[in-house]
């Protein structure tokens, strides 16, 4: 069962083509991390899903209902947190949520308890002032509240964590994670650790196309090698070792990086050749490492690999 299906989507603004034949499927109940550089087309994709932009070609289905530009009954399934949410500055947060509740047709009797619930969830329960005086972070919190108000089946968040301080970001990620199972979440970001923390599906958008998609584990297997990290006692020792390793023809010279006393080498798995080379070098130089370990590749590595020009 798929909550969102995008097929053969094209979109250009003037002569600039933003999306080229984009295909994307978000299974129901998943937290889908939508990753890409600024300008890759993340926001455009989301706005197309919400019927805020007109596509040039292709179709979008939410809950197997076709999305149309402008007239959007499909939006009854959605909650949307824009990258910079805009509100009516002359309303208080409670009044604003009341307006939203009426629009999403939450039964009148449940409105005020639902609003209370959300205001305390985002930490705005005691704020009586009008939105006019809100900081960026407070607006982002109110944005979260309005997006979750109608218990959407599909929650779409555009760069939700970029305006928050570290603590707010932490809280927001926990909040999203707590919705796992009840709400399908499509969540765009360029902060990759956020994706690693909560997403079960990742899609990498580059040049208007989905270059890679799958669970984090699958992507790691597919795109990145594990790494070997050698920690030496001093930076000097690390430099000596790195020099030796770089002379070894069986290792890729450019892939060896040194950061203070830590050396990182891609771990080629065949015949344990990396391990053999490292151990040989250590013995010849009579160097004793503090630690040698294999580390899992990060999403960042995968990302760089996927988007690199071929």
């Amino acid at each position: 069962m798929n909550m969102l299906e995008i097929k053969h989507l094209d979109k250009s603004f003037g002569s600039k083509q933003v999306l080229h034949d984009l295909n994307l499927v978000v299974p129901q109940g998943s937290i889908f991390g939508f990753v890409g550089e600024n300008g890759a087309g993340k926001t455009t994709t989301m706005r197309l899903v919400l019927g805020l932009e007109k596509s040039d070609r292709g179709q979008i289905e939410i809950n197997h209902e076709l999305v149309h530009f402008g007239q959007t009954p499909t939006n009854r399934f959605t909650g949307y947190l824009p990258d910079v949410p805009a509100f009516y500055n002359y309303l208080t947060p409670r009044e604003y949520l009341k307006l939203c509740a009426q629009i999403t047709k939450i039964p009148a009797r449940q409105q005020s308890s639902r609003i209370d619930e959300l205001l305390s969830l985002v930490g705005l329960a005691n704020v009586k002032q009008r939105i006019n005086g809100f900081s960026r972070g407070m607006k982002q919190r109110l944005g979260i509240a309005q997006a979750l108000l109608n218990r959407p089946q599909l929650l779409i968040c555009d760069e939700p964590t970029s305006a928050l301080d570290p603590q707010g970001r932490q809280e927001f990620l926990e909040l999203l994670a707590s919705l796992r199972g009840q709400t399908t979440i499509l969540f765009s970001t360029h902060i990759l650790p956020d994706v690693e923390r909560i997403c079960d599906q990742v899609g990498i958008l580059h040049d208007g196309q989905l270059r890679a998609v799958g669970s984090l584990a699958t992507l790691k297997q597919q795109y990145a090698q594990p790494l070997l990290q050698i920690t030496m006692a001093t930076a000097q020792e690390a430099a000596t070792l790195a020099q030796w390793l770089q002379q070894n023809p069986s290792l890729a010279k450019d892939a060896i990086t040194t950061d203070a006393s830590v050396i990182t080498i891609p771990d080629a798995q065949e015949n344990n050749q990396t391990w053999t080379a490292v151990l040989e070098a250590l013995t010849q130089q009579t160097l004793i490492p503090l630690k040698i370990e294999q580390v899992a590749p990060s999403l960042e590595q995968i990302f760089l690999k996927v988007v690199q020009p071929t």
């Binding site: 805020l52 939006n75 949307y80 939203c100 108000l149």
Partner: peptide
Amino acid sequence: SQHTLVNLVTKGLSR
């Protein structure tokens, strides 16, 4: 120009 209708329209409000 202020994008204030985005939140409301994405909740299903008719234009």
